[in-house]
């Protein structure tokens, strides 16, 4: 299978290692990985900031760019949600809207793609860590999706997956993280408190926004990694 990388703007500029890990995971699952460097951003930031019209050109470009892709895979649940659901309100051209309808079921979050489209069941390698999961607010509330992702991570040799505390927002919220910094950081610190009750040394998540936010408030010694980074590190056999 050929997988086209969907690299969100935050990953491109702040977290390139998450993008590389995504590619590594896809290759490990036997995919041919392509990256189109013409891409920039899905437009979510504009919709959330109340400027949906600014997202329209980005949505159009996205649909045109990936119209012929076999699968489009990105390391962000919220960006995937933006493409799958948010584009409905943003795309104004009926022709493109039809192309989008055809494209949207082929747009995946990376772990979801590995487990459901590739059927990955056990992940090779080794990663010694006591990990706790922070599932982002934009991950579907579909138990099957969550269980598949959790099973895959729990199966990584050496990785102990601690019981997942109740889901709660990390306080990122896009522009909110910057413009409401005190509140955002306060929410983030509380989230870290809940996540670290069982003394994990690793927080695993599936969202670049949560990653930036939780890293900004995490105490020293607590690693915060994207699920793709965890899987990629396991293949490399990093401790």
């Amino acid at each position: 299978m050929t997988a086209d990388l969907f690299i969100p703007c935050l990953v491109d500029r702040f977290l390139p290692e998450v993008g590389l890990a995504t590619a590594d995971c896809l290759r490990a699952a036997g995919c041919v990985v392509r990256y189109d460097p013409g891409q920039t951003c899905c437009g979510q930031v504009f919709v959330n900031a109340g400027r949906p019209r600014d997202a329209t050109p980005l949505a159009r470009a996205f649909v045109r760019r990936f119209a012929d892709s076999e699968a489009v895979v990105g390391p962000s649940w919220s960006c995937v949600e933006m493409v799958r659901e948010g584009y409905r309100e943003v795309l104004d051209d009926p022709g493109l809207a039809r192309e989008w309808e055809a494209l949207r079921p082929r747009v995946y979050e990376v772990v979801d793609f590995l487990t459901r489209a590739c059927g990955a069941r056990n992940w090779p390698g080794r990663l010694r860590a006591r990990a706790v999961l922070h599932w982002s607010c934009h991950m579907p509330r579909d138990e099957a999706v969550r269980r598949a992702a959790e099973d895959l991570l729990a199966g990584v040799p050496g990785l102990t997956l601690l019981p997942r505390p109740p889901d709660e927002c990390c306080g990122f919220g896009g522009v909110f993280m910057a413009s409401w910094r005190e509140v955002s950081a306060s929410i983030g610190r509380r989230r870290i408190e809940t996540l670290t009750r069982e003394n994990p040394d690793l927080v695993v998540l599936g969202e670049p926004g949560c990653l930036l936010q939780l890293r900004s408030v995490a105490p020293p010694g607590l690693r915060v990694l994207h699920a793709a980074e965890v899987l990629a590190a396991s293949i490399r056999g990093e401790p």
Binding site: A28, G119, A120, I235
Partner: peptide, 16 residues
């Protein structure tokens, strides 16, 4: 990759 077990995935598009 060696060591990775892949079951039958749901065809791309159908699942999502």
């Amino acid at each position: 990759l060696r060591g990775l077990r892949l079951a039958d995935g749901v065809p791309v598009g159908a699942a999502s």
